[in-house]
Nucleic acid binder design. Structure first.
Length: 854
RNA sequence: GCGGGUAUGGCGGAAUUGGUAGACGCGCUGGUUUUAGGUACCAGUGCCGCAAGGCGUGGGGGUUCGAGUCCCUCUACCCGCACCA
């Protein structure tokens, strides 16, 4: 009587066995022997309290890689922890009156229990939460080292202020002019803040991208764009005549990437926030009003798109560097203070913004680049009807000593001359700004600095770390509870013992996640850290392409500089894989409210709400979210189908980098697969033979081919293909049950169980035990492919006539070209299509195909 | 605007990288078991055609004995950045 596999019974049993044997603990470097190391890491979760299907997919992928490496004899580190600081804990505190710490640790406990049920190959002995004082204390020490090294500093600057969360945001956290968490329009405020000097590494962070061969091209490009390196010239336009009162220097400094178009310059434009603009505006009501109008323009995508070019003529003039003429100095709303020098020269013929501006204020347009093949004197800008600036390639014209040169030659020549005349220098500019890390929040890592009335800014001595968060805090009013907590705030100065106050800002939570991988690797032991780093395979969502992944690359370099990590590990993640989301069908009722997919049934005239019969409309399959009511609870799926099925489904239907759609029918298919697998093992004799298989039976060939295919697919992150091969193999095993020798079936099942274990570890243990194995399959070595079995004695070759498949022939694999050709020509179906015509050519690709050309 | 990507049956997708297109799964059709529904199992399923055969990987063109794969060109959609001089 065939038995069924019951995951509800089997899964807890095998998890207990793994735990008892402590199978997933990484070996210390000294115990690892000759085994190479593999550090496999998935982005650690925020402890929201509930696991979602996206987590399941993410961790299932990392688990496949970790198990594969373990089976192949690597010493694997596969840790897990919690990215535990952040706003949701404070929001919960405000809403429910619970302490953020209590809320967070309860969530961690809940999620740890959910994680346990998934049966992941995690080494929990290294678990920590970033809100543990041991962790944030070590982070405070790291901060002090950065301060010592000049990589952390304090300055007053305009910052992005989120009025809802009442905190400062980094540039990376402002999306389309809005706070990344609150969605509130961000305001500009002048505040004194802590910054990390990420710009010191701008060049290195760009250069390092080239070495990251196992990163997605997309992520590397996004980072390169974000850092925004551009080569050009910073130069001065000297004042024509008297310098304006209070103007620093001998002229206006501008940055340009197009020094080849200097002869096309027709105006200078300053940012509304340029220091010269500010000084000119003092006492000038009209200019003040202009600046105010510029500041009022929003920073959203739409506002920028539709913003009218606005200008203000200062009446000042500067000299052209190469020609005896002068240019007007304007103030223009489209010039950003935050990039370059906050001033530009305008070349309307070859820059669209400059052209828009010139047309509006009737400034001259001087074409200096002639497109290739254009006749002499072609108008590409001067004519007032031309509305598009020419930015393509060409030769320089109307440009004195630059005439006739290519754009690249002219750039070099112009820079050489400006440098020779000491008016400027070749410069590289970056878009990247320093990372503002101060947050006016409670639930974060306190910045270990005090302010003393006599000594000023004083770092907290390392021996006094950690600076712990106070427990007695209230969240009844908005703002930072640390700021209001006088008892915590006031302290004595470590230097003079006099009265002092603590820094009340905490660190951006992205600081927490930018070095946790190093902490997992070793705690404080730098030798062990050097052994494990870098992370060999990192797995996570693409939404962190510029935030977390850029910060982590920076901090890894900074840790190299201050001796907390090998400088060679400046790239912390040697391999990166960004997985797609889990989506699910959405439905709405007549009122436009979201309806849970589980409440929908197929009615006679389309989908209806099961309970009421009311019609619903079908929406797109979208990322699971509470607001759209299309989430699927992993716990419910584990209860219904088992963890193995939930895990396998998230990997089976789509390539891992793409989104996968959760469907009920698909999950049921996966559950059927699990039963088919078990049926194959259950069909073996009660005491399977221990005889070695021999010979070259079809089952043995098919099994070794499948093994090789799965091995390669897993290696290349093509998990969906590996799963398809497992399905296929299952069908093969079933068909072979009647006729293959028992020893061959046992061997095939043994290979199968070890492949299956990457994806369905619990079921694989049950299968392994059914084979009479006494050990655990998680400890079984990866099977060797018998290469001899991959080669066939006879091959079936398709035969084409004029490129169309007409027949197939069976020939010995070792047959020579002439024999294959003769066999093909002798085939009756081929002969019919040749139809007596003369054969011009026969192409024989050994082992592949025959093509007869007539 | 700049950058990256995708396009294959009713659906998700596969194709050893230039060599039998559609593996595997879902769905669907027919059958067996079942009191019935469901489950399970068996067979079939790219399109047109009774068949022979023809057509077929977003559109058009090219290279080749042979193209989903390489080249040119066009189109649609998705993602990221965006007044960065």
């Amino acid at each position: 009587m065939a038995s069924r596999y019951d995951p509800q019974v089997a899964e807890p049993k095998w998890r207990a066995a793994w735990e008892e044997a402590d199978v997933y603990r990484a070996k210390a470097p000294s115990e690892a022997g000759d085994a190479p190391k593999a550090y496999i890491l998935e982005m650690f979760p925020y402890p929201s309290g509930r696991l979602h299907m996206g987590h399941v997919r993410n961790y299932a992928m990392g688990d496949v890689v970790a198990r594969h490496k373990r089976a192949k004899g690597y010493n694997v580190l596969h840790p897990m922890g919690w990215d535990a600081f952040g706003m949701p804990a404070e929001n919960a505190a405000m809403k429910e009156g619970v302490h953020p710490g209590a809320w967070t640790y309860q969530n961690i406990a809940d999620m740890r229990a959910q994680f346990a049920k998934l049966g992941l190959s995690l080494d929990w002995s290294r678990e920590f939460a970033t809100c543990d004082p041991e962790y944030y204390g070590a982070q405070q020490a790291l901060f002090l080292d950065l301060y010592e090294a000049g990589l952390a500093y304090r300055k007053a600057s305009k910052v992005n202020w989120d009025p809802v969360d009442q905190t400062v945001l980094a540039n990376e956290q402002v999306i389309d002019g809005k706070g990344w968490r609150s969605g509130a329009p961000v305001e500009q405020r002048e505040l004194t803040q802590w910054f990390f000097k990420i710009t010191d590494y701008a060049e290195d962070l760009i250069a390092g991208l080239k070495t990251l061969e196992r990163w997605p091209e997309k992520v590397r490009t996004m980072q390169a764009n974000w850092i925004g390196r551009s080569e050009g010239l910073q130069m001065r336009f000297d004042w024509a005549g008297e310098a304006p009162k209070g103007a620093p220097g001998r002229g206006v400094e501008v940055f340009t990437t197009r020094p080849d178009t200097l002869y096309g310059a027709s105006f200078i434009a300053l940012s509304p926030d340029h220091p010269l603009t500010v000084s000119l505006a003092a006492g000038n009501g009209e200019l003040e009003a202009f600046r105010a109008a510029c500041a009022a323009t929003g920073t959203s995508e739409e506002a920028i798109e539709t913003a009218e070019k606005m200008g203000f003529d200062t009446g000042l003039r500067v000299r052209h560097p190469f020609e005896a003429r002068s240019l007007p100095v304007w103030i223009a709303n489209f010039v950003l203070m935050g990039y370059g020098t906050g001033a530009i020269f305008g070349c309307p013929a070859h820059d669209q913004r400059d052209l828009d501006f010139a047309r509006k204020y009737d400034l001259s347009v001087i074409p200096v680049i002639q497109p290739p093949g254009a006749p002499e004197g072609t108008d590409n800008g001067a004519n007032e009807t031309v509305a598009e600036a020419y930015t393509g390639p060409g030769r320089v014209v109307n440009s004195g000593f630059l005439n006739g040169k290519t754009i690249e030659e002219a750039k070099a020549a112009a820079i050489d001359r400006i440098e020779a005349e000491a008016r400027g220098t070749r410069t590289v500019n970056f878009r990247l700004r320093d990372w503002g890390v101060s947050r006016q929040r409670y639930w974060g890592c306190p910045i270990p600095i005090v302010y003393c009335e006599t000594c000023g800014l004083v770092p907290v001595p390392k021996s006094d770390l950690p600076v712990r968060l106070p427990e007695d805090v209230s969240f009844d009013v908005p703002g930072n509870p640390l700021e209001r907590n006088e008892k915590w705030k006031s302290c004595t100065c470590p230097a003079c013992g006099g009265p002092a106050t603590r820094e009340t800002d905490t660190l951006d939570t992205f600081v927490d996640s930018s070095w946790y991988y190093a902490r997992f690797a070793s705690g404080e032991d730098l030798q062990e850290r050097a052994y494990w780093m870098p992370v060999d395979q990192y797995v996570g969502g693409v939404e962190h392409a510029v935030l977390h992944l850029l910060y982590a690359r920076f901090i890894a370099r900074a840790m190299g500089k201050i001796g907390l990590m090998e400088p060679a590990h400046g790239e912390p993640f040697a391999g990166l894989f960004t997985q797609g989301m889990v989506t699910h069908q959405t439905f709405k009722d007549a009122a436009g409210d979201w309806v849970r997919p589980a409440d929908v049934a197929e009615g006679e005239a389309g989908p209806i709400v099961l309970a009421t019969g009311a019609p619903v409309t079908v929406g797109a399959s979208e990322k699971m979210s509470k607001s759209k009511r299309n989430t699927v609870d992993p716990d419910a799926m584990i209860a219904a189908y088992g963890a193995d099925v939930a895990r396998l489904f998230t990997l089976s239907d789509s390539p891992p980098e793409r989104d996968v759609e959760w469907t009920q029918a698909g999950v049921e298919g996966t559950a059927r697969f699990a039963q088919r697998v078990w049926a194959n093992f259950d069909a073996l004799p009660q005491s399977p033979t221990q005889m070695k298989p021999s010979g070259e039976g079809a089952l043995r060939r098919a099994s070794h081919k499948a093994l090789a295919a799965i091995d390669q697919a897993v290696e290349e992150f093509r998990f969906n293909s590996a799963v398809a091969t497992l399905y296929d193999w299952t069908n093969t095993l079933k068909k072979a049950a009647g006729d293959a020798p028992e020893a061959d079936r046992v061997e095939a099942c043994s290979l199968f169980a070890r492949c299956l274990h990457l994806f369905m570890p619990h079921l694989a243990e049950a299968c392994w035990a059914r084979l009479g194995q006494t050990g655990l399959v998680v400890n079984a070595p990866w099977p060797e492919v018998d290469a001899a079995l991959l080669e066939e004695d006879t091959v079936t070759l398709p035969v084409q006539v004029n490129g169309r498949r007409r027949s197939e022939i069976k020939v010995p694999a070792a047959a020579g070209r002439n024999d294959v050709e003769a066999a093909a020509l002798a085939d009756p179906a081929v002969d019919a299509h040749v139809a007596g015509r003369a054969v011009k050519k026969v192409i024989v690709v050994p082992g592949r195909i025959v093509n007869i050309v007539v």
